[in-house]
Design a protein around this nucleic acid. Structure first.
Length: 531
DNA sequence: GGGCTAATCCCCG
DNA sequence: CGGGGATTAGCCC
């Protein structure tokens, strides 16, 4: 019971009832307290009483240890509650002696959860109430726990600081790196993109690039025409995109923008022809670049000096005929025009690559258009590397001029000097059954960003057409380079820019389509809302 | 005032 | 009922 003084006997003999609970040698100044659960095959010497106790006398030891200069509240003898207030509300300040703590610590190391019996023995040994021993062990356990937690916390903190430092270093390195694609900073603004999304996108695109380049490499050096067809052509894969069934999500839904029934009969290319399409696109891109850059004698400047006409003989001498020779009876039309377009270069690329925008902006020339298959949507969120198979019907607003249907690949590439290029090349070789009346030789445009936000555009149009039976007036039209030539494309684009500018300024028509340049350089098409 | 520790209270299995 | 978490009380630095 609380209250009774547990005066320690001067000779403590710890003798468990069963005889192995504790062992004590009073004269040897050393005793061991063995625990039943630890006592297997020998006694564990947990309590070393020898320290500072030459006489092995516990009672005296405690008295010796007691420093009389210390506060009177320090427990002196026995460390019990007996001589103090009965355990009611007020606690009296009391500290266990060094010795008592030492002994209990030692025991704790071996057994933090002493049972009743062990506590009793300890209390007897140390002259404490069993309850006090119980408290002490309880408090010790919580103390150890908090200590452990604190230690763990500091460990985590240092680890955290180390990771932070690493992170900073990586960020630093990243911000100094430059993007291999555009030469701009490689660091990704945290605000603008979701990093996770980008990582997934990157992985997908990397895979796509690997696949494309592997296929392209496989066919390098082989003739482009008369491709072996190792596999039977697959059924039409309308809406399918990319290789290996990888989807370029969302494309299928926008297919056939403005396309009529006729175009729906035309499918994508067969699996076996895909390498050929890639090869053609790459070759066409190369040709377009050279066509755009060369001068005399390949090009002859028109009389009024606003555009250039292609010199056929020179062309045949200069360029390998990647599409094969001109079909007999076909006439060649080719022109080039340099122009400044009042539009952001990114917008212009977007218009060309998005069939809906393209057919809308050039609606006076393109009566129908559809994207049949998307090989690649481009890299890094833009159209760089985008390749798609398209079909379109071109028109001239005149009953004298028949429409021309074309089945072609459109390939977009950002070149290392910052120039964007979009090239079309006919894929008629892939459709031997379709006797096309016209073919698009590498045609398209080079787009350069100008400091004022406008775009410098070089437009090349190069088509071969069967004009037999076509009205002579039309032939004159073609000869002037205005019918389907670069000049007309450029003029159409210009008109669209002007139309929008005036629509915006005068606030007039509804339902009109125009082109705008947002500050961010995005969303180029504008359909003025109904009012 | 905060840390330490003996002791208390109280909840939960 | 005992263990353990939360809290308190008293002391020390």
């Amino acid at each position: 019971m609380h209250g009774g003084i547990m005066t320690p006997s001067r000779d403590i003999i710890l003798m468990g009832s069963n005889g192995n609970m504790a062992a004590y040698a009073s004269s040897s100044s050393r005793f061991s307290l063995s625990q039943p659960n630890l006592f297997e095959g020998g006694q564990l010497h947990l309590l070393d009483m020898a320290q500072n106790n030459s006489e092995g006398d516990l009672g005296r030891l405690r008295e010796d240890e007691f420093d009389s200069t210390k506060s009177g509240s320090e427990n002196q003898e026995g460390a019990s509650w007996d001589d103090q207030e009965p355990r009611t509300k007020k606690k009296r300040y009391h500290r266990h002696t060094q010795h008592q703590i030492q002994e209990m610590e030692a025991f704790f190391k071996e057994c933090p959860h002493p049972d009743d019996k062990q506590r009793k023995e300890l209390s007897r040994l140390l002259g404490l109430e069993p309850l006090q021993v119980k408290f002490w062990f309880q408090n010790k356990r919580t103390q150890m726990k908090t200590q452990h937690e604190r230690h763990e916390n500091t460990q985590l903190r240092t680890e955290n600081e180390k990771l932070r430092a690493d992170n900073m270093r990586y960020r630093e390195a990243l911000s100094n790196a430059s993007c291999p694609n555009c030469g701009g900073p490689a660091a990704i603004g945290e605000m603008s993109f979701d990093e996770h999304h980008l990582r997934l996108e990157n992985a997908r695109l990397r895979e796509e690039i690997d696949r494309i380049s592997a296929i392209a490499a496989k066919y390098v050096g082989k003739p482009v025409v008369n491709y072996p067809l190792p596999m039977a052509p697959r059924p039409l894969e309308l809406g399918a995109s990319g290789f290996g069934g990888q989807g370029a999500g969302g494309v299928g839904g926008e297919m056939y923008g403005g396309a009529g029934q006729v175009l729906k009969a035309v499918g994508g290319v067969s699996e076996a022809d895909k390498p050929l399409v890639i090869d053609l696109a790459v070759a066409a891109m190369e040709e377009l670049i050279r066509m755009a850059q060369m001068g005399e004698p390949l090009w002859t400047v028109s009389l009024d000096g606003t555009y250039s006409i292609l010199n056929q003989d020179e062309y045949i001498r200069t360029f390998p005929r990647c599409m094969g020779p001109k079909p007999s009876g076909f006439k060649c039309e080719a022109s080039r025009e340099n122009v400044v377009v009042i539009m952001n270069h990114i917008n212009l690329v977007e218009i060309l690559m998005d069939v809906n925008q393209w057919s809308t902006v050039f609606s006076s020339m393109v009566s129908r258009a559809a994207t049949l298959e998307v090989f690649s949507t481009g890299v890094a969120g833009n159209y760089n590397g985008a390749l798609q198979v398209m079909t379109a019907e071109f028109q001239v607003p005149s009953p004298l001029v028949p429409t021309r249907e074309s089945y072609f690949a459109r390939y977009c590439k950002l070149h290392s000097d910052g120039t964007w290029a979009v090239v079309d090349v006919s894929l008629d070789n892939l459709r031997p059954g379709h006797a096309s009346k016209s073919r698009r030789r590498p045609s398209g445009c080079l787009i350069q960003e100008m400091p004022n936000g406008y775009s410098k555009v070089i437009w090349v149009e190069h088509v071969e057409v069967d004009d037999r039976g076509v009205h002579s007036l039309y032939k004159q039209l073609v000869h002037s380079g205005n019918a389907f030539g670069a000049k007309r494309w450029v003029a159409t684009l210009d008109r669209q820019c002007e139309r929008l500018a005036s629509a915006m300024a005068t606030n007039i028509p509804t339902g009109e389509v125009g082109v705008i340049t947002s500050p961010e350089g995005r969303k180029s098409m504008l359909k003025l809302a109904e009012r």
